[in-house]
């Protein structure tokens, strides 16, 4: 069953990557990237448990925090990159 879960997570990451390539807007791509990040946390946790690594939980915990901060940072960047030129026009 662990194997099935790992395969499902990898398939989901593939689907999200397709959306990231297709995505009409930058926001779609960022949403897909955020989802790949969350799935990477799960992949580290499930895969690490399946392979019997020690200390996989620490890595997954760290990755969960970094994923959140990076997606917030990129979204703030897009927000102001888009709004600043329109304010200059006015």
């Amino acid at each position: 069953m662990l194997f099935a879960a790992v395969v499902a997570i990898i398939v989901t990451m593939g689907l999200a990557l397709i959306r990231a390539c297709l995505g009409p807007t930058a926001y779609d791509r960022m949403l897909a990237t955020n989802m790949v990040g969350t799935k990477a946390v799960l992949l580290i946790a499930v895969g690490g448990h399946a392979l019997g690594w020690s200390g996989y939980a620490d890595i997954a915990l760290l990755y969960a925090m970094i994923n959140f901060i990076s997606s917030i940072a990129v979204m703030r960047f897009f927000e102001y990159q888009k709004t600043l030129p329109s304010q200059e026009d006015e």
Partner: peptide
Amino acid sequence: ASCFLIGGFLCITGGVGLL
């Protein structure tokens, strides 16, 4: 085992919904 199966199914569901 059922947690893994349902969780994996939900993951794929989210990916399909995203597409």
